[in-house]
């Protein structure tokens, strides 16, 4: 379904962000990526849709190799990958509806985009998805008038309307309060399951990442140091990923869930 082979990224500054990462995702699962700041999480996710150009390695999505694509072929490949961002990255001065429909820009012509003449079926779907995430009636609001949680919902809808085969999610909750963060993670997890697609989620909040993930990958200094189910994440694992610390209070007790 999705596979990353030996991905390497060395920035022009000489910084080795990724030192040969390999990850296979063969079913629709939520994969949380843990790792300290600067471990290469953000680079990893951006090398997949080539917002950052990988130095070497291969990325396969449904059998299609992505790192070698150019121009139009690359744009077509990007259409199949929905991305959700840390700072939402909505177009602040445009309306919620324009932001949502921007997810379909890969499918409309320049003039259609310029005059906002999107096909009716896209508009219908946009309304449905906005209702699904609890933003019914917000379509004519400007993005900069929304709260953080509402903006991220728009971000989620913008990614989903692409009909992606995979969701790339970069720190979706970092600017949100704990309750909103949980709601947003729940929404991403639910929608990925509904659509039957995998999601790769970079996340700083260990408890939150564990709670919603089917699988955890630990990334440290550009290398995968852990890959396994959330229940296997122990204090030792976190020490391995983040370094020495008292992790006993951070670990979510698996037994609690089974009560």
């Amino acid at each position: 379904m999705f596979s990353v082979k030996n991905l390497v990224k060395t920035y022009p500054t000489g910084q080795h962000a990724l030192k040969g990462c390999s990850v296979d995702i063969d079913k629709a699962q939520i994969v949380s990526i843990f790792g300290p700041s600067g471990a290469g999480k953000s680079t990893f996710i951006r090398c997949i849709n080539r917002l950052v150009e990988p130095t070497s390695g291969e990325v396969y999505l449904d059998g299609m190799e992505i790192t070698g694509l150019k121009g139009r072929e690359l744009h077509k490949a990007r259409r199949q990958m929905g991305m959700i961002f840390q700072e939402y990255n909505l177009i602040e001065r445009l309306t919620v509806m324009e932001n949502v429909l921007s997810g379909r820009l890969g499918y409309v012509g320049f003039l259609q985009a310029m005059f906002r003449r999107f096909p009716q079926e896209y508009v219908n779907e946009a309304f449905d998805l906005l209702e699904r995430v609890g933003l019914k009636g917000y379509h004519n609001q400007r993005a900069d008038a929304l709260s953080g949680g509402q903006r991220q919902r728009v971000g989620i809808v913008r990614a989903l309307i692409q009909h992606p085969k995979i969701l790339l999610v970069d720190e979706p909750t970092s600017g949100l309060d704990p309750k909103t963060a949980m709601i947003i993670m729940q929404l991403i997890a639910d929608l990925a399951k509904e659509k039957g697609i995998p999601a790769i989620v970079n996340i700083h909040d260990v408890a939150l990442g564990q709670q919603y993930a089917d699988r955890i990958i630990g990334l440290t200094e550009g290398e995968v140091v852990f890959d396994g189910p959330p229940s296997k994440v122990t204090a030792e694992t976190l020490t391995q990923i983040y370094g020495e610390e008292d992790w006993s209070k951070t670990i979510r007790k698996v037994e609690d869930e089974e009560d």
Partner: peptide
């Protein structure tokens, strides 16, 4: 960031500029 988000949708250069 806003430019990056539009690039991520698969829009080409002209449409990235537009949005």
């Amino acid at each position: 960031g806003q430019v990056e988000a539009i690039r991520a949708t698969g829009a080409n250069g002209g449409k990235v500029f537009l949005f």
